[in-house]
Nucleic acid binder design. Structure first.
Lengths: 257, 257
DNA sequence: GCCCATTGTTGCGCTTGACGAAACGAAGTC
DNA sequence: GACTTCGTTTCGTCAAGCGCAACAATGGGC
């Protein structure tokens, strides 16, 4: 199966090495033989590539039986990536404050390749830390962040961005017409909600972050268990989220006459 | 400069490509010529490698003047890495080693709703063992773990996290001013001690675990009866604890640049 | 406006470095 | 204990990646 080899042009061995990273990202872990089969190369070739990746700590062995998985070098590179993004830089202190004020987890996401890419996360003070979403691609129609990001698109862009609207729970919006109505409401009220739409028991609030031109460049969300985000508390959280997102927007140059 | 030289062995072109990622992580962004000079290769070589990296979205152009920086592909890989890589799982083998080296009990704790929540515990080899604390909420001001976790907070967060400082023994720190001094010392020296502060005869050493952003996300401690953790042995245990916590931090992506 | 300096980008031969086959050692399985 | 299957190593061959040099595009200085 010729999968990620679409990047046909380029330096062959580098291309293959990077494909290995993608394979490991997809499968979690794998042995040399398995990887070699996936790429369609000899196992000695795969071994040499993996060894090179390992010397840079981008992959590591899982102790038992010499299987490989992605390593800490990736995280270090990711840290450098987000550290450079001025969006994350500007947003971080405000996210911290928002997380402290609400006690819930705060996320920042942007639109990337038809799904929401989470750039940063600040854990709330509450116990159960949700797993880290950073770097994950999340469906757009079933999350508050996704709705906010979609609400910033023009109609024709919207069609391009949306694939099929998968069902996650019985509250997931799966009809396009209904989604359009929802997006209009989001645009109107300046924030989005998602209650039990991606996962039962999970509630999230998101508000848009705008650049100097007024475009929606990112979305900031607060999410937590639905029982902690009931009706009365939700209003307060919404207000905090909207003003935090507006503050970040200001720092990015929005609203300066 | 500790770049490609140490990773001498391996597939040359892959080695160089990965070095480019490291260079960009360090410098933020750079042109082809600049990168080529850094690696000691011809510009055209650097260009081809960068182009290959770009086709996998690990680097991207900054629009203006064709300079390059790390791309979102890195974040996607990082997402796959952290998805499987939670704190307890990463810390466990290192906790085991630390418990074996010291013969004492090792704990991992995080901050949760104004107290320390113990996530994991590895019993030491010694016969005399403390009860299992996992899942327990423990006061912050009277434990080494608590001090470490508090030391990572800003001043206003500190006020919110601390209630009244209960007295457990005559060594318990109960005055806020004194606690602040203690926390400053903890921040400074990179570890915390608690001798007879929660319980007479109980000594503990704790060191911070940091994430990629440098935030204190957890605390790792070694604890045992005070008579086994006397002055001379304490230094050794402190050193082991600090380096173990640092190792976990590294696995979570801390320590770039 | 023009020129020059410097950048990223692209063909092109030469040779080095990466490839695949096969042998090896270790671990598990029946 | 033989068999299987894995990761790892060695080695000769050849194509893939390299450096060179020419090209294009941009910006700054005069």
């Amino acid at each position: 199966m010729r999968n990620a080899a679409e990047a046909g042009t380029g330096v062959q061995s580098v291309d293959r090495a990077l494909s290995i990273l993608e394979v490991l990202a997809r499968t979690g872990e794998g042995g040399v033989t398995e990887i070699a089969a996936e790429l369609g190369v000899h196992k000695s070739t795969a071994f040499r590539l993996v060894a090179t990746l390992e010397s840079h700590r981008l992959v590591e062995q899982t102790g038992d039986r010499g299987r490989y998985r992605l390593g800490v070098g990736i995280l270090r590179l990711a840290g450098a990536t987000t550290a450079r993004l001025d969006l994350v830089q500007e947003a971080r202190p405000i996210c911290r404050q928002l997380a402290a004020d609400t006690g819930e987890t705060v996320n920042v996401a942007v639109l990337s390749d038809g799904s929401a890419l989470y750039l940063d996360q600040v854990a709330g003070s509450s116990a159960l830390q949700p797993h880290n979403w950073v770097g994950q691609h999340i469906p757009l129609h079933a999350t508050s962040n996704g709705k906010v990001l979609l609400s910033g698109l023009a109609d024709h862009e919207l069609d391009a961005a949306l694939g099929t609207l998968s069902t996650y729970t019985e509250h997931t919006i799966t009809r396009r017409a209904k989604l359009r109505d929802e997006l209009a409401r989001v645009r109107d009220q300046g924030y989005a909600l998602a209650v039990d739409e991606l996962e039962v028991g999970l509630t999230a609030v998101a508000a848009p972050v705008r650049n100097a031109h007024g475009d929606v460049v990112a979305s900031m969300s607060v999410s937590g268990p639905s029982f902690r985000l009931g009706a009365e508390r939700l209003d307060h959280v919404v207000a905090l989220t909207v003003s935090s997102a507006a503050e970040v927007s200001h720092r990015l140059g929005w609203g300066h006459r």
